[in-house]
Design a protein around this nucleic acid. Sequence first.
DNA 1: CGCCTAGTATGGTCGGACCACATTGTTGTG
DNA 2: CACAACAATGTGGTCCGACCATACTAGGCG
Lengths: 239, 239
Amino acid sequence: MTDTTDRAAGPRAYQAVLSSIEADLRSGRLNIGDRLPGERTLSEQHGISRASVRDAIRILDVMGLVRTATGSGPNSGTILISDPAAGLSSTLRLHVASRHLPVADIVQARILLETWAATAATTRPIDEPSLARAAELLALMDDPALGREAFHDLDSQFHVLLSTLAGNAVVSAMMESLRLSIMDYVRHAVTTDEQWQPVAQALRHQHHGILDALTARDGDLAARLLGEHIEWFFTETAR
Amino acid sequence: MTDTTDRAAGPRAYQAVLSSIEADLRSGRLNIGDRLPGERTLSEQHGISRASVRDAIRILDVMGLVRTATGSGPNSGTILISDPAAGLSSTLRLHVASRHLPVADIVQARILLETWAATAATTRPIDEPSLARAAELLALMDDPALGREAFHDLDSQFHVLLSTLAGNAVVSAMMESLRLSIMDYVRHAVTTDEQWQPVAQALRHQHHGILDALTARDGDLAARLLGEHIEWFFTETAR
DNA sequence: CGCCTAGTATGGTCGGACCACATTGTTGTG
DNA sequence: CACAACAATGTGGTCCGACCATACTAGGCG
């Protein structure tokens, strides 16, 4: 039960572990930060081999639900985390690679989610600390000596931060995963520094405009600027 | 390195296979419907054990990128498919289970995506066959003798079909995955037939209204009805 | 007391074995 | 010759047992 992703095959051994863990999560017996029993223990508890247990844990790993670490002590073993965007983005990225999810659709979906988030953010109480943090990020990005990787990283943080202002964890996770899924696509689009510098300058300007609109609680303006921002970047780079 | 999901751990053996397959997908050397080499062949090609190869294939499996089948012949082995919603939904479902993605956020995101799709659909050329198919689905759902499982199945098909009218594969995949991720949550909410019958009746009526609006190319109305439809269902069942 | 070492528990990888299954080829029989 | 029954083959699914690298833990030794 609790499985809607059957592939109409024989019951896989690892499903036992997955179902058990899912049930424990729902009931609250397991929580983020908890350590899972060791693989050898689980294999004994469920009466399956350690290999099958590892299948289940590997799945949870790529889903962004656990992290694993070797060694001993409290920081080792399999530990429950919560990184939905990681799991979603890797899935999306592979499907983009298979060319059944067009990059244009990814971009369009991102615009949809982010503009909604911008609008929704202005219907909620003002989150002063987050806005301050956003301004801080923009200030860091204004440094002309900043490397491209660092810029992308800050850029990512900025967009994620804005999307969290809407207070919808699903939208934030999906938006971030969309962004991650086409990140190296973007990285490869602009290759030289000569191409990059003017782009970065434009992005800085756009970012400030967006944040200003949000600070002024003008959701419609923020949404419009954000949409144009994303749209512009992709027509600019993916030509 | 075509890998943005590193967990900052030692290089996993299965990454070799994943990267190779991802590269082959991007370059077009692999396409949907193709058969992957056997696990034993892959393990030899990449110089890793079959167990590690199986890790990679298992990951692709849960992502909805391949299906596996035992036996011999053209329909056996590991075959490339494209089912993004399956991979996304299983990830979402587990994260919902961990209670870090509230069901309310899922519903809100679904409303966002579906209402957008309804609006976007009316800005595109009329897809007569799909609308006819949608009407057909509603007609089937009108049968009062229909079982609940069958109703849910047709319901699902109806919503997915509508979302495809917008012509954005990513939005469709995400919308379907959101739906799947909370499907058994819904199934458990309404338990008895006495509870179910009036709900089904209301859903039928709402569906017809939505389709009528779409057929009349009134995107705003369709979006509004669709939003109310989803909202109503969840406030009705998840009380 | 403090440093160093042996012990222990953990996931990561490997190789090999066997099973269930589906197709294909072969053989025996009518 | 036709065809059914059987054997061979190739596939993923599972299991077992072993060994490794790592990271913490507990003692022993200076």
